[in-house]
Design a binder for these strands. Structure first.
Lengths: 346, 346
DNA sequence: TTGTAGGCGTTATCAC
DNA sequence: GTGATAACGCCTACAA
């Protein structure tokens, strides 16, 4: 059994109440007593028992993080941002992943009761209206990450729409006129938003710009197939905007094999700025999304509403703007904000 | 205020004790009563308060994970393995990173008291003999990850020595006779072990094999410099074993620029099997370390000693064997266990 | 099989 | 400024 507040109290010849006050920095403790208590506590290697403290104080100094997964580039970066903020705010992180299993996620969510002061959640199942209601205390502060728009909860996400618009605007400005788009999976929200941005940007550019869309699945293969499809045409686009980098790379590869020079004959651009992008030749222009920043903002937002108590936060979604990344042949990147078009959500 | 065990008891017209027993699957509860209690609990959306439960039961169903960092390929994979085991064993994960700051790590360790049943720790500071003693309850089960050998705690790690020996043996078997080694940082335990494996394997191969070591820092640059150094020589090695993949890639690049064909003129091999390795041309032969498996084993070991109670576990280190990965030109990998030499630790 | 009650380690509310 | 003491929500002897 380890040393408790009682042991400290006894050793310092004061009551447990005084020890508690001294340790928690309350003002109504004589300076001499405080010092003695602190010294004794250090001497005894006392460290407060978390469960007891949080049972009594109803605070855990912990936030729950429930994600589809916790490995891979995306989640790793997300965790990094979250972790960084957590450390500076003295918060602990209770992480949980559910690997695409709704029941498991429900269990994870319910298990958070009494363990956390707030919740960071990334989940496709929030589509189910009362999924959250069933599994998490309405009183628990919560911030959604990358949720589809229109949720009643506070959420932070990526401005896929704005990023895509900015990218297409960039191509238009550069003089490209026949801009094709390689789509992502049908049911993917990010893909949908990027396509919407592509269409709107073209529409905004003028009547001479017409949509030219090819199917894709966000993987290298489908990008490759899209590239081959373009090769088979007699009349080709002069630029291809792939909804993500993996497809852009696949497309680049296919075009290269087909003898098409990039970007001389056809420019290929992507979205995401995955690590691999900097090793691709010719260098890939893409949209960088600061995932760590996304995580950091989510946690900050959460701590804010925690601090504000049960404030009826106005429903809203905060969107993170991607930045245009243009690499020269040496791989050096030039990034600039996509500021272009304002987002459609608020 | 959310629903407590009392509410359930009241609604089911039984005592809290009975509710507790029913919920925890104790045997001495009438079946009819159990069902009623369960139904009521579900109805009320009751979910036990963690802090209260763990305060009285002295179990948290949580393991603490304290790492230098929680992002990046290595930690991400490690977390994946840990998470996978945690989920199947119904354990939660309280993660904490300290970013190279010893004080912060100490604080993280101390903050674990009363929050976790066991600890997974990866830290260079365990070199400091009483660092752990000062910061963590001796009674808390703990498993070290990738610690330098010879610690009194249970630990799991990578068999860098065995992997390096196997790699060199592979080169020797393939007929290479002049095998150079690009070293890692002086103070890096992994690098040290790999170098030791290189030396011992050469010694075991026969007198005609002599060590040929070049300095390196585990980064692409130093591999590049090593390659240039080799280019400047009139008599060159016929194989280069870089202590990690990044250096191997840098070296490959330098040799390629110098007109040396690989592996025809000089074979270059690495260690780690980083994701980038599969995109390198010509394909890189390397040693794959299953980091996720490392994490999984660590947690399994921890849960085992937790289960065994205060068993005085025999001091020992479990080592994970790397596997030789040989890729053909298409990038397809052939992996085989490095089984070669037995490890020197036990 | 079920209920009563004590205790887990802290914090917070009172008196003093 | 300090010390009893009652929560906090749950588990678990011990009784009934």
């Amino acid at each position: 059994m380890s040393v408790t507040i009682k042991d400290v109290a006894k050793a310092a010849s004061v009551s447990v109440a005084t020890v508690s006050r001294a340790l928690n920095g309350h003002q109504n403790v004589a300076e001499a007593v405080r010092e003695r208590v602190l010294a004794v506590a250090a001497e005894l290697r006392y460290s407060p028992h978390h469960a007891a403290r949080s049972l009594s104080s109803r605070r855990t100094q912990t936030v729950g993080v429930v994600l589809p997964d916790i490995h891979g580039e995306f989640f790793s970066e997300l965790m990094r941002g979250i972790d960084q903020v957590a450390r500076t705010r003295g918060q602990h992180l209770l992480v949980s992943s559910y690997h695409g299993n709704p029941e498991e996620q429900g269990a994870a969510l319910r298990a958070m009761r009494g363990r956390v002061d707030g919740l960071l959640l990334m989940s496709p199942y929030v589509h189910d209206v009362d999924f959250l209601e069933r599994n998490v205390d309405a009183s628990l502060p919560m911030v959604l990450i990358n949720a589809a728009q229109g949720r009643p909860q506070l959420s932070v996400g990526i401005d896929n729409y704005g990023g895509a618009r900015a990218m297409v605007a960039h191509l238009v400005d550069a003089g490209y006129t026949r801009i094709a788009f390689i789509d992502g999976p049908e049911d993917n929200d990010d893909a949908r938003e990027r396509k919407r941005g592509y269409r709107d940007a073209l529409a905004a550019a003028g009547e001479t710009y017409t949509p030219w869309e090819l199917p894709g699945q966000f993987d290298e293969d489908s990008g490759h197939r899209a590239g081959q499809a373009l090769l088979a045409l007699e009349s080709r686009p002069d630029a291809v905007f792939a909804a993500n980098d993996m497809m852009a790379i696949g497309c680049l590869y296919a075009l290269g094999r087909g003898g098409v020079r990039t970007p001389a004959d056809i420019a290929v651009v992507g979205f995401d700025d995955i690590p691999l992008a900097r090793y691709v030749h010719p260098s890939l222009t893409t949209m960088r999304v600061d995932i760590a920043e996304l995580g950091a903002r989510a946690l900050k937002a959460l701590l804010e509403i925690e601090g504000a108590g049960e404030t009826e936060t106005a429903v809203h979604t905060a969107l993170l703007e991607p930045a245009l990344v243009i690499r020269d042949s040496s791989g050096t990147a030039t990034a600039s904000s996509s500021s272009g078009e304002p987002s459609n959500r608020s």
